[in-house]
Design a protein around this nucleic acid. Structure first.
Length: 570
RNA sequence: CGGGGUGUAGCGCAGCCUGGUAGCGCAACUGCUUUGGGAGCAGUGGGUCGGGGGUUCGAAUCCCUCCACCCCGACCA
């Protein structure tokens, strides 16, 4: 490709409404343009990247025996009513009417459609297992689309759905998909981690997320430094090895004037925050309107775990209103404590392991010191409801946890018979009896991968594409292309050679000054660059620089093809 | 949905408080010079100042209203 025939539209200044780096760079490099909130046009340059992602996904899915098909984006409401999700899904589902006032939605996902297709097409256990996939546009009417393509309303997803006669078969396909995803992300050339998204409480691992690691990621993931354990922090179990010590202090109420935060109280009383507890009050549903949750002072509540483990909490999880708390408990939220609390109290494992601790006295400006479970207040109801922290012991007993941030780009899931039962997707078994199938589903956020790749790999000059995703592998920058026949001939000849070898090459024939060419090629992240100049040609040389190299190197012209071949394949 | 903010040329912004000829930088276009890190000079084009309504002799500017976009949204105990 020559720049003169390509829509290369780079921008020097960062658009004001782009917050995250990937969004800024995608706009500046001319990969996308915004149409409306959460809706983007893929420009030719961006589409090239998107296609590379798609092709890798497609090749690996095909290799894994999955069958590609393509389902409509617009789906009839009847199917969603059948699965029960027309009611459940809420405002994220974009609903519309056709001219006959029949109801439709734009698909945020395709379980209903594939299940409907399956039940019409597949009749016998002999045809199972099958795994269908598509690469297709989804629409989710996000409350707040943001971060450009990262959380767009319309986006491209690879979604796959498998059908099985039994759990063992599902597990087998699930394992194959796990390996396939690992291969796909290996081929992307991105640093990633599969994490269990459903470990602990339920047992087994029925769901894994694939995260691209990047500091700006929205998710926190915890992984062991000594084992394969890795989980989304939403799910990661916090275990406590500490045993509760015998009481040594007596329980006393002390003055803590105007002290409301753990920080203030622990500093004032000269005790470590780890020796204090904090008491949060959440909304309950049913019998108790308020429920107290007690955590060690330095810990954070994990609402997802709390909701699962604490009985009677309102769903979705909600903190109680401070005014409501004051009315019910008689003090401000900074002075709450489990001692003398007249609402149900649940205690996190770590807080339950404390002795001689500090807590609020349920009176403003007062705290208790030297508090002990069983002695001063009843043996608590213990649950696991805090976020794990860096350095916590790994739940599998091997090593310590580290916390890193990640961007969720893949998710594989064992669905069971949720849809197949609701929609009667069954086959005849060996005895001629109807058998409800078991399903798995497997997604990759294709467009999000593009943003995640940039989020992980960029520098001050712009995007740094991994080889496999780059829109072009090689940039040819001839200096004085319009004026020097010598330069033009050398650049054109090499360009031609590259084309013949099927190299994705971009020749900058705009005749721009070198600084402009270099800045553009770096901004759009081309991994390799060759410069032709009169100066170099006099020595029968040109210049090569990798996108991340500190400096360039001179290459003899007769060795250039071999050298480039080597760079591209290494 | 609640709170905050912003809408002025393709992009980034000033002007608004204190009403009176709509500006700057980048980008674009033309010409000349320049060609190893976002060039210089000279010139050109491009705006119903987000929409509607009002106040006024006169509104980008003041008032009302609608819209779009962006940010934040329960860790505080």
């Amino acid at each position: 490709m020559k720049t003169s025939r390509f829509h290369l539209s780079t921008v020097k200044e960062t658009p004001a409404d782009a917050e995250v780096i990937s969004h800024q760079l995608m706009l500046r490099a001319g990969l996308i343009r915004k149409l409306a909130s959460g809706l983007y046009t893929w420009l030719p340059l961006g589409l090239r990247v998107l296609r590379k992602v798609e092709n890798i996904v497609r090749e690996e899915m095909d290799n894994a025996g999955a069958l590609e098909l393509l389902m409509p984006a617009v789906q009839p409401a009847e199917l969603w009513e059948e699965s029960g999700r027309w009611e459940q899904y809420g405002p994220e589902l974009l609903r519309l009417h056709d001219r006959h006032q029949r109801e439709f939605c734009i698909g945020p996902t395709h379980e209903e459609v594939i299940t409907d297709l399956f039940r019409r097409e597949i009749k016998s256990y002999k045809q199972l297992p099958v795994n269908y996939y598509q690469i297709q546009t989804k629409f989710r009417d996000e409350i707040r689309p943001r971060f450009g393509i990262m959380r767009a309303r319309e986006f491209i997803m690879k979604d796959a759905y498998s059908f099985h006669t039994d759990q063992a078969s599902l597990q087998q396909t699930y394992d194959v998909m796990f390996q396939t995803y690992s291969r796909i992300f290996d081929r992307f050339g991105l640093k990633y981690r599969p994490v269990s998204a459903d470990s602990g409480a339920i047992g087994g691992s029925k769901s894994h997320e694939f995260h691209v690691l990047a500091d700006s990621g929205e998710d926190a993931i915890a992984f062991s430094d000594q084992s394969q354990y890795a989980a989304n922090i939403e799910m990661a179990e916090a275990i406590t090895t500490q045993q509760r010590a015998e009481p040594r202090q007596s329980c006393q109420m002390v003055d803590t004037p105007d002290m409301y935060t753990i920080e203030e109280v622990s500093e004032f009383l000269s005790v470590a925050p780890t020796q204090t507890v904090k008491t949060l009050v959440a909304r309950g549903e049913g019998e108790h309107k308020l429920i107290a949750l007690v955590l060690r002072g330095d810990h954070e509540l994990n609402p997802i775990k709390a909701e699962k483990q604490v009985g009677g909490l309102a769903s979705p999880f909600q903190m109680a209103d401070p005014a409501e708390i004051k009315q019910a408990l008689g003090c401000d939220i900074g002075s709450l404590g489990p001692l003398g609390m007249n609402i149900p109290v649940y205690v996190d494992r770590s807080a339950a392991a404390l002795s001689d601790f500090v807590c609020g006295a349920n009176k403003n400006d007062k705290h208790y010191t030297g508090v002990n479970w069983e002695r001063d207040l009843p043996q608590p109801t213990v649950v696991d409801m805090r976020n794990v922290m860096d350095g916590d012991p790994s739940p599998d007993g091997q090593g310590q946890l580290s916390i890193v941030r990640g961007i969720e780009v893949g998710h594989i899931f064992q669905l069971g018979d949720k849809y197949s039962a609701a929609m009667d997707a069954s086959v005849l078994d060996e005895n001629g009896k109807a058998l409800v199938t078991t399903m798995g589903c497997y997604g990759i956020g294709v467009s999000r991968v593009v943003a995640a790749a940039i989020e992980q790999n960029h520098d001050d000059s712009g995007i740094i594409w991994p080889q496999s995703l780059a829109p072009f592998q090689l940039a040819i920058c001839p200096i004085n292309y319009q004026k020097s026949d010598e330069v033009k001939q050398a650049a054109d000849a090499f360009y031609q050679q590259c084309l013949e070898q099927d190299i994705d090459v971009l020749l900058d024939d705009r005749g721009m000054r070198p600084g402009v060419m270099f800045a553009d090629m770096e901004l759009i992240g081309i991994p390799h660059r060759v410069v032709f100049s009169e100066r170099g040609l006099k020595q029968q040389q040109c210049e090569y620089k990798g996108r991340c190299d500190e400096s360039s190197q001179d290459i003899d012209l007769d060795q250039l093809p071999d050298f480039i071949h080597q760079q591209l394949t290494s």
